[in-house]
Design a binder for these strands. Structure first.
Lengths: 127, 127
DNA sequence: GTAACCGGTCACCTCAACGTAACCAATGAG
DNA sequence: CTCATTGGTTACGTTGAGGTGACCGGTTAC
């Protein structure tokens, strides 16, 4: 479209994106998975979330959830029981994020084989 | 939806996601921006890409582009000129990725203010 | 008495991603 | 002769995200 050099406004607008992409917390390795899990399952307890998003450590899950809560994407419900029960669910805002994120997840599912094939072909050519 | 404990199949399917999400190379800090830039601009030269995706170093851009090329998402066209000219553009597969990625970028643009407001409210409450 | 359960927190360490700076080859311009 | 241009590569250093393991509190079950 634009050769870029002829389009001085471009750099500025992409700066906004990069700011907002990081603002959206997608820089975190696990955030997307947590949002997708909550979006699909509805409310989940801490332990359930940890099992659903396999491989995440308790520490990182805690951090991720705190950040999501801070950004208004996830709501935390604590019940004064013993043993303790804490449920997490997406807020309305979180649910709006879930839509494009799930689309991305679907892309990954649908095109994983193609990507893998391309990768193997590339590696075969380089050897 | 499911309390998880009643749904043993879940863990396995999410494992597939996590595999594919990383397969999709969105773990890289810059990959999404590069794909969005190429998707919006069409073909771009190395230098143009570097200017468009502000803040990326030549080294990391090279790495990112190699990975994307390897995964069949980006095509590299080298012209035997002096000074050298190399153009990058999305493949058909890359263009399919651009769709959900751009949706995500749009979400970030649209909801940045809400996220920021939530964050400030949260921080105010904690102090 | 002690072990398990749940939802964390804390201290510590590692590793890979990222940034920086120097360098390169071939050519054309001044 | 020298400098700039283009698209990188290489060596090196840093930093912070993430992993690991220990520990906690209150209650119930063995």
């Amino acid at each position: 479209m634009w050769p870029l050099s002829q389009n001085p406004g471009w750099a500025a607008s992409t700066a906004i994106w990069s700011t907002r992409m990081s603002l959206a917390r997608l820089d975190n390795k696990w955030t997307a998975m947590v949002v997708i899990a909550l979006g699909r399952c509805g409310a989940l307890r801490f332990g359930g979330l940890r099992a659903t998003v396999e491989g995440i450590s308790a520490k990182v899950l805690t951090e991720t959830l705190r950040d999501l809560e801070r950004d208004g994407l996830v709501a935390r419900h604590e019940y004064a029981e013993m043993p303790p029960r804490v449920e997490y669910e997406l807020t309305d805002l979180g649910r709006t994020l879930h839509v494009p994120l799930q689309a991305l997840g679907r892309w990954a599912e649908e095109h994983a084989a193609e990507v893998l094939a391309a990768r193997e072909a590339y590696d075969a050519g380089c050897r």
